[in-house]
Design a protein around this nucleic acid. Structure first.
Lengths: 257, 257
DNA sequence: CGATCTATTGATCACATTCAAATTTGGTGG
DNA sequence: CCACCAAATTTGAATGTGATCAATAGATCG
């Protein structure tokens, strides 16, 4: 079984889902951490729980937006396609992240969302979200915090793309990804070489070459889609140092209930 | 007098400022388009009007945030500095844009804000903005729309940086900038060659070379900091076509008053 | 007018892409 | 369990692009 077929990129799976938002394991960190219990109670009906295999497209850039989603387990990439046809991965979503909310302000999705691992999603029709937003203005605080975090992430990506060389970008990304997944030396890497290139503005071959070199040097190793970082310091020096993004925006997200 | 010393990059200056938010020429398009008249009325005291020459830093990345700003006239760049010391311009602000609001969710500014032309600003202490946000939840809608627009912009930048070549990025940028400034053939370009490079992830020399070549070919000309586009089609083909960003998010911003 | 900063141009070099081929991996069914 | 296939990865060689280094020309401001 490939890494891409392991839920949550190989991490311990979230507890089994039922259709009860109240008992949702990601509720606290999700958007609805901001909503009172009785409101979340009534969410049961409209929201819909989905289990989707790896490699599926959840929605397409520019398609009419019908729903937003909360990612309960697994990894999803958000991409945009340039005029020349090349793809750019803009964000990688993991447990607790939301997507498709941008259509609150437009009619269409801004990205294509594709599963990189099997995924558990909670689907919320936009109509419901819009009503919630009207009825509970505090929800906007949570949305604002999410938007701010997304902006931070994409800004960081733009700085990487605009100021660093191939090996620096790749090294920084590996450290970032390990950090994001608990900071352990072992980390599932659900991105193919091609996808890693699409994130970092590089070709498959370039990505592959640096991986190969770093394996030779003993900086990293890889087995069954799980990456092991043996020499963070070496990568750190290559990447020019990785500093965790300020996440105050998210951790400080309001809990009203 | 260089272009950088012309307010608003050489465009007709905004009407003379007084300290009256009610008569502010950018109020409708500004954040406070969302606020009722009587509330804006009371803004007179706390908000402060500033006139600042070109080349000044308004605030620094990571500095403690004390105020947010509305840009009434002129051009400002928002930059972040990478670990290796190289700068990345993330956004260019023009009339009606706001900045420094990210500190609502953190303690510090996320960017360094530098004037590219003389500038007229409206400074609003964060304490006031926070109070407004609490008292008028609808303000969050306007903030959300701004944040969404900013995210769109930076995502577009990331796609440019990640998927396009030097000449494509530069061509696209020129078309974008002309479009943003009313779509006329003549456009003030308040960026130095170095700064253009810092926006597009290129060196001064590379930027200069393409400008030179395109001048030779008659695609563009330049005089006193004003760029003239003679052959948009040529640039369009180079850049792979420029499509205006969806701005529904902004144009649809709620007006409550 | 002279000093200083910015832009241009040229020559060389390093990096990353491209094109092509070989190899490995993971999944399939015998 | 092994053989086989398709897809992904790795590796090599050649090319092209953009960076770097260096020198000149031009603009701006006191």
């Amino acid at each position: 079984m490939s890494i891409r077929n392991k839920p949550n990129g190989g991490r311990p799976p979230a507890p089994l889902m039922d259709n009860d938002c109240m008992r949702c394991p990601v509720r606290a960190e999700s958007l609805f951490g901001a909503l009172p219990d009785d409101v979340v109670e009534r969410l049961n009906n409209p929201s819909e729980h989905l289990v989707i295999p790896a490699g599926e497209v959840i929605y397409q850039e520019n398609a009419e937006a019908l729903a937003s989603y909360t990612l309960k387990d697994g990894v999803i990439k958000l991409t945009r396609t340039a005029v020349n046809g090349r793809e750019q991965i803009l964000r990688l979503l993991t447990q607790g992240d939301i997507m498709g909310v941008e259509s609150l302000l437009g009619q269409t999705y801004n990205h294509t969302a594709t599963t990189l691992t099997p995924v558990q999603l909670c689907r919320l029709p936009l109509s419901v979200l819009k009503r919630l937003q009207t009825d509970h203005p505090t929800l906007n605080n949570a949305l604002l915090a999410r938007w701010a975090a997304a902006l931070q992430q994409v800004e960081t990506l733009a700085v990487e793309l605009g100021t660093k060389k191939a090996n620096e970008r790749l090294a920084t990304f590996l450290l970032y990804w390990a950090d994001k997944n608990g900071g352990h030396a072992q980390v599932p890497l659900p991105l193919s070489r091609t996808e890693t290139g699409e994130l970092l503005g590089l070709t498959v071959e370039t990505v592959s070459r640096f991986f190969a070199e770093w394996k030779r040097r003993g900086y990293v190793s890889e087995k069954a889609g799980v990456l092991t970082l043996h020499d963070r310091e070496a990568l750190n020096q290559l990447g020019g140092g990785y500093t965790a993004t300020k996440l105050t925006a998210l951790t400080g997200s309001p809990r009203i209930g």
